[in-house]
Every structure is written in C-alpha cells, then in structure tokens.
Design a protein around this nucleic acid. Structure first.
Length: 428
RNA sequence: GAGAGUGUAGCUCAGUCGGUUAGAGCGCCAGGUUGUGGCCCUGGAGGUCGUGGGUUCGAGACCCAUCACUCUCCCCA
C-alpha cells in the first residue's frame, strides 16, 4: 500500500477519523478557518495568497543563514539547475516579498494582510508538529510602528480564541529591543554568562557562541537558577523601545487583555525587533505548546531589498489549535445533510430525483438514496449520516402530491406538501 | 540529527512459558418486518498478526533489519 509521506496526513470527515487524531477532522478545520476569516474581516485584514514554492534565497536572506533553518527546509533545483527552490517553511518572508514586488507601499495606510495555508519543515514529527502543517497568520506592514497595531492584533486573537472556546491560553510578552539597544544587551549578557558557563548545559555553551540571546530560552532544569540571575532585556531597552513596550502594556491594560511579561522570551530569528510574543496553549498539547508566535520585524523589508518599512505579525499553527479545541467542537460543527430522501419503487425513484433537484435549488442540502435500498436500510443510512429529516416517497405520496416527513431526532412524522417541506427545512 | 515506546479485524484492544483452526467488544453485512432508523434477537463476512529476513520440530510472541506511528531531545520560521 502506498501511504502518505512521513509527517503528512489526510483530513477527512470526523466519522472516518481515528479517535485522538482530531487534527484530521475536516469539521474542525472549517470551524477554525471560518472563525479566523470572521476575525480578520472584523478587523479589516485582507487575504493574500503567495506561492507554496519560493526561491531559496528568500528564506536564506529573511531568516539568516546562521540558523538551522537551511537544513530543515525541503529544497530542490529546477531542471535546468539554475534555480534553487524551497517549499515555504513560513510565510512572513513571502508576504513581505509580495508587499515589495507588488508595490503595496505605494498605497496609503497600513497594509493588513492575512494568509491561511500549508507550510513545510523537514523535522522529526511529534505531537503538534508535522512536516506539512498549516498556519494562519497576519502581517501588518507600513510606515507606523505604533503599539496600537500590536494591541489591536492581541485583541483580535483574544476574540478568536474565545470564539473557538479555547480558554486555557496565556499571552507571553517581551521586547527584544532594536539595533540600538540589543548589541549592548548582548554584550552585557555574554559578560554575565562568563562565570556561569561552567554550570550550564551543552546547548547553552553552543548558543553562547552562536546566538547568545537564545541562552535565555533554555529549558534545562539545572540551568534555570543561573539564567534567573542574568540581566533582563526589559531592563536595558533604549528609550524608544522602552516607551514602545510601556505604551503597549498600557494599551493591553486598557483593553483588559491579560499578558505575562516574560523577559527571557526571545525569537529565534535575527529580524525581530521590539515586541516579541507567544501564546501558549493548554494541557491538550504536549511539549509543542506554542499556539501563536510573532513579533515586530521593522528591518525585514530592507533585508529583502524593499523600502524602509515597519512590520508586525504572527503565525499560528492550525493543527495545534485543532488539538486545543473543546471536545464537543465536532458536534457543534456538524455538517450532515438536512434531508435524506428514501423512496419505494421506480415511479417514486424518478419523482425523488426531481424533487431533490427542486429542493436543492431552494438551498436545502439533500441526500437521495442512489442505491435503491429497502426503506428500512434507507432510514438506517439516513440515521448514520446524521440527517435531520427523512422524506419517504412511495406511490401514496405521488398520488397525493404530499410526502411523509420524518423528524429523525423526535421520531415524529407528518404529511407535508413540497412548499411546507421547504419552509420547515429553510427554518433550520 | 539523537533517544524511548508502539504496530494483531474498519475502530478500541486481549492473546499466558514459543504449541491445535488467532479472539472479544463496538462497527459492518444479512435476516427477524416486501412502507419506517436507534433498542433487542439470530446468523455472517472481515486478518499475508506493519514489512523482510533469522532462530526453532513449531513464531502473533524470541532475534536482526526496515517502514510507519506516538512521545521526548534538538530546533522552532
């Protein structure tokens, strides 16, 4: 048997999905995608779709070649061998590229874009981490770096998770400074780390050389006491970054949005400035429990060859949201037919197909028995499909031009005309 | 890239010390009712025991390899 490649999966109706593979349930995807699109609509954020493949160079420049990003990308060469292509590992770089390439900076006001789509990373799969995964994200690009941008996005995310019934989340907030204050901090950090280094783990030693900021993020238990003694980013921000951060916190307070300042939260990539944040999810997730990650990236446009531009955005792993949804989500998102038509005999069969078409033209979702089952079997199928109503058509019904409409939940049935059927089904 | 665990029917799982024809519950199919689903009763189908090798008189079980899944480390754009 030929199976899906490692770290990928099919998404299909919930009744076909193995228990505990909730991220494969299409109803959950629809729930999350429609809530997201509604959130974006309310906040005036418009959709952008960028290609799944991009020139490798885009991601190399965007995220820097220092990181492991390279080896974790799916890449290939064009047949001519002249171009190196990557399956997108994230979308921020693509969106900023599109912003530049399409000249969006020539339009007035902030550019507020969202995307929903597949991303690819060549990593070992585990809970909430797959090789093909989906993210939904927002990028707010323009000339302003007002913290009102961040505050509004956090407000939207609050609504979004509330709408989905996901309550056990936490907003972790930090500022990673900018090109003015961060170098000072890194110098201080390295100095402070020197005498603690012998006590720290191997990873910390490596990061001390390659990316000292990430030492702060180490999760090894034995490192924690020493890490707590390190200087705090938020204590060493330059005037501008400090003011930005304080203003953002005040705006969140005004909106009654809960957050936790997490001085040791850093982002992996170089282009982030000022605001950095994560939203972590609850107990249904394993160790991969970051449900949203993002931050401000005021220098990224220039790195990609565009005009000086500021930006703020986030990306959210859809599979992790799906795993975090309440257990009854699929029931609430039920996508079963409103009406199942069962018939008896050839005349009724023809009649059923014609009636089904008329009902569908009225916007009713209708499933007709296509296999000529016995009535008993047809009703069992209607039950199995979760149809709200079953319509029974036999010679009697054709004669009288009225049908037996059975409410499957109540097990009650009555005789209805076509117009009455339409009225009842449109009401639901 | 590293480690640990798991892999038996559509699903959830049992299968003793290596021993006859591999089981259960649920689901599925048929019948009990040729115009009525769920409950009940009767019967039935469905398995190369992940795959390939090996040990053995004999392997679902033991060994090796491999693939996949799960979880963790790593990394996290």
């Amino acid at each position: 048997m030929i199976e899906t490649v490692e770290g990928t999966f099919d998404v299909l109706p919930a009744r076909f999905v193995k228990p505990n593979r909730v991220y494969q349930q299409i109803e959950r995807w629809h729930l999350v995608e429609s809530a997201a699109r509604e959130a974006f609509r309310r906040y005036g954020i418009e959709e952008i779709r960028t290609p799944i493949i991009e020139k490798l160079e885009l991601f190399e420049r965007g995220v820097g070649t220092e990181t492991d990003v390279n080896k974790e990308m799916f890449t290939f060469e064009t047949r001519e061998g002249s171009e190196r292509i990557a399956l997108r590992p994230e979308s921020t770089a693509s969106v900023v590229r599109a912003y530049i390439q399409n000249g969006l900076f020539n339009h007035t006001g902030l550019t507020k874009l969202y995307y929903i789509g597949a991303q690819f990373r060549h990593e070992r799969p585990q809970k909430g981490r797959y090789r093909q995964f989906a993210q939904l994200g927002v990028e707010i690009i323009g000339q302003s770096d007002s913290p009102a941008i961040e505050a509004e996005v956090f407000e939207m995310l609050t609504w979004f998770f509330k709408e989905l019934g996901i309550s056990d989340t936490q907003l972790l907030l930090n500022s990673v400074g900018d090109e003015k204050c961060r170098p000072n901090f890194i110098a201080k950090l390295k100095e402070s780390l020197k005498d603690k280094l012998p006590h720290l783990c191997g990873n910390c030693h490596r990061r001390y050389e390659t990316n000292p900021l990430r030492v702060l993020d180490c999760k090894v238990e034995s490192c924690q006491p020493y890490l707590n003694q390190l200087p705090r980013l938020t204590d060493m921000l330059c005037e501008e970054c400090d003011a930005h951060f304080k203003e953002l916190c005040a705006m969140l307070d005004e909106r009654a949005i809960a957050y936790r300042i997490t001085p040791r939260l850093v982002r992996g990539l170089d282009y982030y400035t000022k605001t950095a944040f994560e939203i972590v999810g609850g107990g249904k997730l394993g160790s991969q429990n970051t449900i949203v990650g993002g931050g401000r990236y005021d220098g990224l446009s220039e790195i990609l060859g565009g005009p000086p531009t500021k930006g703020f955005g986030f990306a959210s792993g859809i599979e992790r949201i799906l795993i975090s949804l309440p257990d009854d989500s699929v029931a609430r998102a039920k996508e079963s037919p409103a009406l199942f038509i069962a018939y008896l005999g050839d005349a009724a069969r023809k009649h059923s197909f014609a009636l089904a078409r008329r009902l569908r033209e009225e916007g009713v979702s209708v499933v007709v028995d296509l296999e000529g089952r016995k009535l008993k079997k047809a009703l069992a199928l209607a039950d199995n499909l979760g149809a709200n109503y079953a319509l029974i058509i036999g010679d009697n019904e054709i004669q009288s031009q009225s049908y037996t409409l059975r409410d499957m939940q109540k097990s009650a049935q009555k005789t209805c005309s076509e117009a009455e059927i339409i009225a009842i089904l449109k009401k639901d």
